[in-house]
Computed example of a mutant assay.
Amino acid sequence: MYYTFSEIIFRMGIFTVSPVQFPAKVPSSYLSVGPLIFFVAFLPALTCYFCIGSTLILQRDIISNYSLSNCPHVKSALPPISYSIGVWEPQKFVWIIALMLHLPSRLLFTMTIPQIYLPGLGQYILYTSGTIEALGLICVSVFNVDSIIGFHAHAGFFVIWWAAAMVSMGIIIHLQRLIGHNHSSSYVLRMWRLKIGIMATFFAASAGCSIFYPISQNYCSVTAFTIFCLCEYSVVGLNAAYWGVYLSEFGRLYDGFEITAVKLDKSTSDEPGTRPKSQSGSQILEISR
């Protein structure tokens, strides 16, 4: 007896669909904190340093032809970050890929971390500054120094990112002091003091960028431009270090994020995934301890 191909597939049970009640279960997923911390805190900085290092090692011709904007006869031995991640290729594409991996995790933490603190002005400031910091990084990357809106707009977006980062750092330190969290253990106290030190160094390095860049352009000073580049590299690393310290503390308290769909019109049900009527809105994200 011979069977057709479709009959063989049918008899083997391939593509057989069994009827089940819809929905079979509440759709949900679990995101571990560890990988998210890497994507938020360290991936942008590591990618930035990779782009700089690969340019220095593999593209010496680019560096040898790079000169200061206002001093075309003055060459620089160090590439600025803006060109390394925003103009030169293939570094530009590596940075864009890293940014695409970074932003979803960053937005997730931006939405949830302020909920650790009691509702109030501090929580609102932290949420706002974190959102602006993420948007500022996007604008700095998209509107690079060679974009249609020019260098000054790129510099303006960098200032926005820097200011938002400073506010985020400061408000976290202030809120931890305000609620007494910094004295909850010796470890937390050390980390709180470390965050203060990183923030102060971040501010000093940022001040160095704003001082030495105009000096390098006005006086055609290679030394001033080199110091500017080193300060710029430091700003990136210090920002990553701050968020790495703070999110590591977060990881000591929470295992991950549980994202669950919330059913509609099930206010009286005790099923998983339903929301009581007294809780308005549609929150779908919970922090799992």
Rank of each mutant, 00 (worst) to 15 (best):
residue 20 V to H: 13
residue 21 Q to A: 09
residue 22 F to V: 15
residue 24 A to H: 12
residue 24 A to V: 14
residue 24 A to P: 10
residue 25 K to C: 11
residue 25 K to G: 12
residue 27 P to K: 00
residue 27 P to W: 00
residue 28 S to D: 00
residue 28 S to F: 00
residue 28 S to K: 01
residue 30 Y to A: 00
residue 32 S to G: 06
residue 32 S to E: 07
residue 34 G to E: 14
residue 36 L to S: 07
residue 38 F to P: 03
residue 39 F to T: 02
residue 41 A to F: 00
residue 42 F to R: 10
residue 42 F to V: 13
residue 43 L to S: 02
residue 44 P to N: 04
residue 46 L to F: 06
residue 46 L to K: 05
residue 49 Y to V: 03
residue 50 F to M: 14
residue 50 F to L: 15
residue 51 C to E: 03
residue 51 C to T: 05
residue 51 C to Y: 03
residue 51 C to N: 08
residue 52 I to V: 15
residue 52 I to W: 15
residue 54 S to P: 13
residue 56 L to M: 15
residue 57 I to C: 13
residue 57 I to M: 14
residue 58 L to F: 15
residue 61 D to Q: 10
residue 61 D to N: 10
residue 62 I to K: 10
residue 62 I to T: 10
residue 63 I to E: 03
residue 63 I to T: 05
residue 64 S to R: 03
residue 64 S to N: 03
residue 65 N to V: 07
residue 65 N to M: 10
residue 66 Y to I: 09
residue 66 Y to H: 11
residue 67 S to Q: 09
residue 68 L to K: 02
residue 69 S to F: 11
residue 71 C to M: 04
residue 72 P to E: 07
residue 75 K to S: 05
residue 75 K to D: 02
residue 75 K to N: 01
residue 75 K to Y: 02
residue 78 L to G: 04
residue 79 P to M: 13
residue 80 P to Y: 02
residue 80 P to T: 08
residue 81 I to G: 03
residue 82 S to D: 04
residue 84 S to G: 13
residue 85 I to R: 05
residue 86 G to M: 04
residue 87 V to W: 02
residue 88 W to L: 11
residue 89 E to C: 12
residue 90 P to V: 06
residue 90 P to N: 07
residue 90 P to D: 06
residue 90 P to R: 08
residue 93 F to E: 11
residue 93 F to T: 09
residue 93 F to Q: 13
residue 93 F to S: 11
residue 94 V to M: 12
residue 94 V to W: 15
residue 95 W to T: 09
residue 96 I to D: 08
residue 101 L to V: 01
residue 103 L to H: 04
residue 104 P to C: 00
residue 105 S to Y: 01
residue 105 S to G: 02
residue 105 S to H: 03
residue 106 R to N: 04
residue 108 L to V: 08
residue 108 L to K: 07
residue 109 F to H: 03
residue 109 F to D: 01
residue 110 T to S: 09
residue 110 T to P: 03
residue 111 M to N: 03
residue 112 T to N: 10
residue 112 T to Q: 14
residue 113 I to G: 08
residue 113 I to W: 08
residue 115 Q to K: 15
residue 115 Q to D: 13
residue 115 Q to N: 14
residue 117 Y to W: 15
residue 118 L to I: 09
residue 118 L to V: 08
residue 121 L to G: 04
residue 124 Y to D: 15
residue 124 Y to G: 12
residue 124 Y to L: 15
residue 124 Y to E: 14
residue 126 L to Y: 10
residue 127 Y to N: 11
residue 127 Y to Q: 12
residue 128 T to W: 00
residue 128 T to M: 01
residue 130 G to F: 09
residue 132 I to L: 08
residue 132 I to P: 03
residue 132 I to H: 02
residue 133 E to C: 07
residue 133 E to I: 04
residue 137 L to H: 11
residue 138 I to D: 03
residue 139 C to I: 11
residue 141 S to K: 12
residue 142 V to S: 07
residue 142 V to H: 10
residue 142 V to G: 09
residue 144 N to G: 06
residue 144 N to Y: 02
residue 145 V to W: 05
residue 145 V to Q: 11
residue 145 V to L: 11
residue 146 D to Q: 14
